[in-house]
Simulated assay, not measured.
Amino acid sequence: MQGPASEDQPQPQAGPAQGTVAPLRLVRLKTRQEFLAVAGARRKFTTPGLMLQAMARPDSDPAAARVGFTASRKVGNAVTRNRAKRRLRALAADVVARRAQGGIDYVLIARQETATRSFALLREDLTTALGRLRLLREARP
């Protein structure tokens, strides 16, 4: 009788690499009241590809960030707006989860260029906006 296969055994999880920080847990903003609260904080930065609004929440979990996405009809028809929001969701999973501070509400607002701008430029736009709002977190050594 043979022992269990090695792939059936639990494998040790590799921890985060030295000098990196654990990604934030992203929670969605869903209600109009939440979006209006972030807009009311009047903390925003606009780039060619997107607009970022942010609001600090002192009572929140520093290992999580709440994120909302919106695209008005100025962006284009329904297909274009949906594509823009999909790209913003992918961008948030990539940049906000890894580089942004926790305990903050973020709203990413699509602009007309969001649907057609290259993803690398969108990533740069979001990183610039986070930096200008002083919401980038540094990697720990």
Rank of each mutant, 00 (worst) to 15 (best):
R140F: 03
V96W: 00
R66L: 05
R28S: 15
D105M: 02
T128S: 03
A5F: 06
A78V: 12
L50S: 06
R137M: 05
A139G: 15
K30N: 13
R111V: 01
P16W: 06
V107K: 07
T127K: 03
A41Y: 01
T20D: 02
S60D: 14
T128K: 01
I104C: 14
L130R: 10
A64R: 12
L24A: 14
R89C: 04
L24D: 13
S72E: 05
A22I: 06
A120I: 00
P12E: 08
A56P: 11
A115G: 10
N82Y: 08
L26Y: 13
S118D: 13
T31S: 15
A17N: 08
R89F: 07
L24G: 14
R57F: 04
A129C: 06
S72N: 07
L26E: 09
L36P: 02
F69A: 05
L136Q: 12
A78H: 11
K44A: 14
R117P: 04
R42F: 02
F45T: 08
L108P: 01
I104V: 15
D105F: 04
L126H: 01
E7Y: 13
K74N: 14
R42M: 07
V96L: 15
A84E: 02
D125E: 01
R87P: 01
G49C: 01
N77W: 04
A93C: 06
A71V: 03
R132H: 03
L24N: 13
E7Q: 11
P16K: 14
K44T: 11
L88R: 11
G19W: 02
E138D: 12
L122V: 02
T80R: 15
R42A: 14
L29M: 10
E7T: 12
G68Y: 08
E34D: 12
Q11D: 06
L24S: 14
V67A: 09
R111D: 00
P58Q: 10
D105N: 12
D125V: 00
A56G: 11
P141W: 05
G15S: 12
R73F: 04
Q112F: 07
A78E: 11
D59G: 10
L136G: 10
A90C: 09
R66C: 10
Q11W: 07
T46N: 11
R123A: 03
S60Q: 13
T20N: 06
